[in-house]
Design a protein around this nucleic acid. Sequence first.
DNA 1: CGAGGCGTTGAGCAGAATCAACAGGAGTGG
DNA 2: CCACTCCTGTTGATTCTGCTCAACGCCTCG
Lengths: 249, 249
Amino acid sequence: METPLSRKLRNYVPLGPVERDMLAEALEPARMVEPRADIVEEGEDPRSVNVIQSGWACRYRQFEDGRRQIISLLLPGDCCDPHIFLLDRRDHAIGALTPVSIARIGATAMAELMSRNAALDLAFHREALAASAIQREWTVSLGRRSGVERLAHLFCELHVRLSAVGLADGTSCPMPLTQPDLADALGQTTVHINRTLQDVRAARLLTLKSRRLTLLDPDGLRRLAKFDPSYLHLQASRVAPRGLEAPGP
Amino acid sequence: METPLSRKLRNYVPLGPVERDMLAEALEPARMVEPRADIVEEGEDPRSVNVIQSGWACRYRQFEDGRRQIISLLLPGDCCDPHIFLLDRRDHAIGALTPVSIARIGATAMAELMSRNAALDLAFHREALAASAIQREWTVSLGRRSGVERLAHLFCELHVRLSAVGLADGTSCPMPLTQPDLADALGQTTVHINRTLQDVRAARLLTLKSRRLTLLDPDGLRRLAKFDPSYLHLQASRVAPRGLEAPGP
DNA sequence: CGAGGCGTTGAGCAGAATCAACAGGAGTGG
DNA sequence: CCACTCCTGTTGATTCTGCTCAACGCCTCG
C-alpha cells in the first residue's frame, strides 16, 4: 500500500512492493489531532515514531512572554520522533497546525524494519539526514536571508517537499499556514509578513489565496530566495535541477 | 585513554575503561588543519567520522555576495560527519576557526564500535540527538531572541559545552571567536556585535578579553538569555541545574 | 615597515517591531 | 436567523533595533 511515508522514502531509495508492504504493516491505525493541539504525549516510547498521514504540524517553542518560534514544519510523510523525551525535560513541543492524522510505528516494529531490510534502513537514515539539512537551511535563512528572501525560500522548500509526496502539481500546492504561522516560522511579525507578501505578489512571483499557493514565476522566486533544492536530497531535484517537477497527469 | 570524545560521551552514558580503550583504538592519528582552511574533503567515505581533538571549527554557508552564516560550532569532542557528501552537492562546508587537530574514525571501525558495544552505540545516538537539539536552539535564537539575548545564550551554551569536555572552569572558558565570527554565528554585523558586547560588559554580566570569557554573573546571564541547559542533554545539567559546574580541583 | 585583520566609534538610514484600528469570515449560541 | 466572538488579513503612524558606510587605532605577522 502506498502511504505518504513510502512515497517520500522512495525519493531516497528505490523501494519495491515488498518494502511498501512492510511499511504499511508496521503502521498502526491512525488517530486524529485537532488544530492547535499537541501531538506527542509525555511518556511515549522514545524509540517509536509518529508519522504524519495527512495535515500539517510543527515543532515549536513558546516563551513565557508569548513569543513563539516554529522550529520546523512537518508535512505528510514526515516523522516526528518523540526522542524529545529521551531525557528529563522536553525542549520543545509538536503541535498540529491543521487537522492531522497520525500513525505510529512502534519501537519494536521500527527496530525490526531497520534490521530486516537494508533498503528501508538506508531510506530512514537518508530521511534523517534530509531533516537535519532542512534545519540547517532554516538556520541560514533566519540568520542571513532578508525578509523577502526568507519568505520566498520557505515557499520554494515547501513546494518541493510537497511535490515529493505527490501533494503539489507543477506550480501550485496547498498552503494552510496563516500569516501568524508564517511569522512564527520566519522570525518576524504578522504585520511585516503581510507587507512582504504584498511585495512578492506585486512582483508577480506568486499568488496565495484560499489556502493555496501558486508559483507564477518559479525560477524568479528561486533566484530571489537563493534556493538550491539539492540540500533536500530528493531524487527529483537531482535528476532535474531546473524544471523541478514533471507536470501532473 | 581519555580523549575529548570519550570525555563528552561519558556525559550521556557511563563508559568504563573498556569503552574508552575501544574508542581510543578506533581513532586514527590526528592531523592538523590551519585556521580558515576547510576540514572535510570531497570524496571522503561518508560513513566515517571526523572528531575534533583540539581547536574550534564551524559548519558554515557562504553566499556569492559575501554573506556568511555559521550554522554550528564544533568544539573538542564534537564529531563532524562528512555525511554532507552522501548525495550530489554539499550544502555547506566545515572550516577551522583556530588551529584544529582532527582524528578520524574510519567507516568500518565506526560500524564495529556501534555493533559490538551497546553503551557506545547509545552514547553516539544521544550525541546526535544533542547535536540536533543545539541546532533547534539556534533556530529559536535566530528567530525569536533579541541581540543581547542571542549573545548571552551563545555564551551560556558554549560554557556548558566546554565544561562537558573539561575545558572550562566554574565561571570561565576559552573564547577564540572573533567579533566577525560571532556576527556570522548570530546573524548580525560586527558593528552591532561590538555594541552588544559593550552592553553586556557594562551590565557586569561578563568579561571577554585575550580570547577568554568570564561569566561575572552566570545566573543573571542565564536569565537574560532564557537559557535552560537541559536541551544539551548533559548529565551535569541534570544533576545540578542551578550551579552548573562543580568548582575545579 | 607595511599589510591586513580585529576592535571601536560616529552619523545616518532602513528594515522590522509596535501600537492601534478595522474589515471580513467562520463558528457559536441565543 | 441574527448577534456575538474570535481569528485572520490589512492598513497607517510611529519607534527602534540593527544595518551601512566610513574612519581610525591597534596588534600581529611577514
